[in-house]
Design a protein around this nucleic acid. Sequence first.
DNA 1: CAGATTGTTGAACGGTGTTCATAAATGGCC
DNA 2: GGCCATTTATGAACACCGTTCAACAATCTG
Lengths: 203, 203
Amino acid sequence: MARKAQHSKEELRAMALAAAREIVAAEGAAGLSTRKVAARMGYAAGTLYLVFRNLDDLVLQLNAATLEALDAHLAEALARLPAGAGPRQRLLTLAHAYYLFAQEHFHLWSLVFEHHLPEGETMPESLAARVRALLGRVEAELAHLGAGAALAARVLWSGVHGIAVLALTDNLAATGPVDAPALVDSLVNRYLDGFAAARRNQS
Amino acid sequence: MARKAQHSKEELRAMALAAAREIVAAEGAAGLSTRKVAARMGYAAGTLYLVFRNLDDLVLQLNAATLEALDAHLAEALARLPAGAGPRQRLLTLAHAYYLFAQEHFHLWSLVFEHHLPEGETMPESLAARVRALLGRVEAELAHLGAGAALAARVLWSGVHGIAVLALTDNLAATGPVDAPALVDSLVNRYLDGFAAARRNQS
DNA sequence: CAGATTGTTGAACGGTGTTCATAAATGGCC
DNA sequence: GGCCATTTATGAACACCGTTCAACAATCTG
C-alpha cells in the first residue's frame, strides 16, 4: 500500500510540525491529535511514529520551534530600536515584545508551559538550549548590574511571563479590565529603580 | 439497578470533588477521568452527569475549592505574623506563602491556570469571586500606596505567580539551579523600593 | 524475473467524555 | 397488602483518542 520515499524523514518531520502548529494555533492544545495531524499531511496516523517517539515528542519539538520563533521575534524588536537606546528601553522593548508574542500566538505559547514532562523525565536539550538563549537576551541587557544580573534577569523574565499568563487566561479579568502593557511597564521600571536604589545604599 | 437517595446531590458533589482532588494531587491533570472519579466514589460514570454539566464543570468547581484552600493558607501565614509587622513584611509573607502552596499542591494549583474555558465562555462567578478575594488580600497590604495600589497588587501577584510557574515547571531549571524564594524576595523588595522612589520623585 | 527491502497502512486494543433507554428501589394511594 | 408513579443509578453505546504491529504494495538488487 505504499510507494517508496514519498517524502524523506526530514520532510515528514517538517510537515508534521507544520500541521500540528496550524491545528494548535486554530483550535488550541485540546484540538491536537495524531489522527488530525496525519490527515492534514495526507498520511495515516501510524506514520507519525516513524518520525516521533510519540505525541509528547512531537509537542516537545513543536515547542522548541515556538521558542525559536519567539527568539526571532525578540531580536526583531531590538533591531527596530535606535542605536542609542539605553538598557532600560531595551528591556522594556523585550518585555513588551514577549507579551505581544504571547498574545498573538496564544495557543502555541501556552503549549510550551502547559506541557508537563512525564514524572522524572528531563527537558530535551533542544528545548533547554532555547530557554537559555532567551534568558541570555535579558541577562545581556542587565550586564551593568554586575553580580546581580543573573537574579534580576530571572525575576524580570518570570514577572513578565506571569503578567502574560494571568492577563491572557482571564485570571485577572475577574477583577476588572486589565491593561497588561501598563503592568509590564510598572514591573520593569519599578524593579530597575529599586535595584538601582539598593545598589546605591550598599556602596 | 439503584436504590433510592443513597446520597443526596450535595453529598455526591462533595464526594466527586474529593475524589477528583485526590486523583489530580496524585497523578496530575492528565490522570483525571470521569470513570476514575466515579469508581473512587463507588458509582458509575454516568452518575456524575446528575451533578455536573460535564467534566469541565467539575474541574471548575475543583478549582474554586483550590483557590479557597489557597486563601485559607494565606490567611494562616498572615496570622502567624507578629502584630507589629509592617506592610513589606506582610507582603513578603503572602508571596512566600503563595509559592509554598503552589509547590505543595503543584498539580491542583496547575489545574487552576491550565484549564482554558471554551472559546467565548466566561469564568463562573464562583471562581471569579475567589480570584477577587485573593487579589484583595494583596491590595489591602498596599493601601499605603494610594492610587497605585491596584496596579502594584496586580504586578506583584502576577510576578510571584510567574516565578512559581517557571520554577515549578522546570522552565528555568534549564539555566541552572533556581532559588525561587530568593527570586520572590528580590521581586517584592526591589519593586517596593522602586515604587517608593518613584513616589518621592513625583512629589 | 525473483527476492529482499522499504514505506505505509489500517485494523485492533484499551482508554476517553457523553448520552440515554432501562432497570431497580422506594413512596404514596387505594 | 397490592399497585403504580417517581426517583436514582446504571451500563451499553457512540465517537473519538494514542499506540502498536502484522501485512501489503512499491521499489531496489541481483
